[in-house]
Computed example of a mutant assay.
Amino acid sequence: MKIDNTVFGAITIDGKTYEHDVVVRLSGEIVKRKKKLSKKLYGTSHVLSKDEAKFLFEKGCDQVVIGSGQMGNVHLSPEAEAYFERKGCEVVLKPTPEAIRMFNRSHAKRIGLFHVTC
C-alpha cells in the first residue's frame, strides 16, 4: 500500500482518490475518519480528542502518523497525547504532504490519519 499524492481536499492511495479525511489501518484497510468524535467535544475536527485517539489506536501499533492538513492545522488534545503515550505509541504530527512521505518510508507498525483540507 502506497499513498500516492495529496491536494487540497483529496488524497490518492494506490491509485484511488478519496475526497475526505482517511485512516489507514494496520491491515492497510482505508476507512473514513470519524471526525465527529472530536467535533462534538471541541466544535472542530482540528483538535484530535481522546475518543478519536481510542478509535484510531489498534493493539500492536507502534506509531501513528497524523497528516495535520495541507497547512498543518490539526493538533492533539492533551488527553489524546497522554492516551498515545500510555499506549507506548509514537505520534508523528506533520502537515499532510510531509506526513505522507514519512508514512510511506516508515517501517514501523503504523496507522495513518490524514486530514486533507486546512
Score class of each variant (00 low, 15 high):
Ser45Ala: 09
Val65Tyr: 05
Ala99Met: 05
Leu48Trp: 00
Tyr18Val: 01
Met1Thr: 12
Arg33Thr: 13
Lys87His: 09
Ile100Asn: 12
Ser49Gln: 12
Leu76Trp: 07
Lys87Gln: 15
Asp62Leu: 04
Ile13Arg: 00
Val7Asp: 12
Thr44Gly: 12
Leu48Val: 15
Ser27Glu: 04
Phe114Ile: 05
Leu48Tyr: 09
Leu26Ile: 09
Val65Arg: 04
Asp4Trp: 00
Val47His: 00
Thr6Val: 14
Leu26His: 08
Gly43Tyr: 13
Asp21Cys: 06
Ile11Val: 14
Asn5Arg: 12
Val92Gly: 06
Ile30Leu: 02
Ala80Arg: 10
Lys109Trp: 07
Lys87Thr: 08
Met71Lys: 14
Gly72Gln: 07
Gly67Gln: 02
Thr12Phe: 03
Asp51Glu: 15
Ala53Leu: 11
Ser38His: 02
Gly43Met: 11
Lys39Ala: 15
Glu85Gly: 04
Val74Lys: 11
Pro78Arg: 10
Gly9Phe: 05
Ile13Tyr: 00
Val22Ser: 05
Lys16Arg: 13
Asp62Ile: 00
Lys32Phe: 00
Lys2Met: 11
Val65Ala: 11
Asn5Pro: 01
Cys89Ile: 10
Lys35Glu: 11
Lys39Phe: 12
Asp21Val: 03
Glu85Asn: 07
Glu85Thr: 13
Ser45Trp: 04
Thr44Gln: 09
Thr6Phe: 06
Tyr83Glu: 12
Glu79Cys: 07
Leu48Ser: 11
Ser38Gly: 02
Asp51Met: 11
Val74Tyr: 02
Val22Cys: 04
Lys35Gly: 03
His115Lys: 06
His20Val: 04
Ser49Trp: 08
Arg25Val: 08
Val31Asp: 06
Gly28Ser: 09
Leu76Lys: 03
Arg110Asp: 10
Val22Leu: 04
Glu58Ser: 12
Val65His: 02
Gly69Asp: 11
Val7His: 08
Thr44Asp: 11
Gly69Met: 07
Pro97Glu: 01
Tyr18Pro: 04
Cys61Gln: 06
Lys50Asp: 05
Glu19Arg: 12
Ala80Val: 09
Val64Asn: 11
Ser27Arg: 00
Ala80Ser: 14
Phe103Trp: 13
Glu90Asn: 07
Thr17Gly: 02
His20Gly: 00
Asn5Thr: 09
Thr6Glu: 06
His75Ser: 13
Met102Gln: 01
Gln70His: 10
Gln70Arg: 02
Ile66Phe: 10
Lys94Ala: 13
Leu37Tyr: 12
Gly15Ala: 09
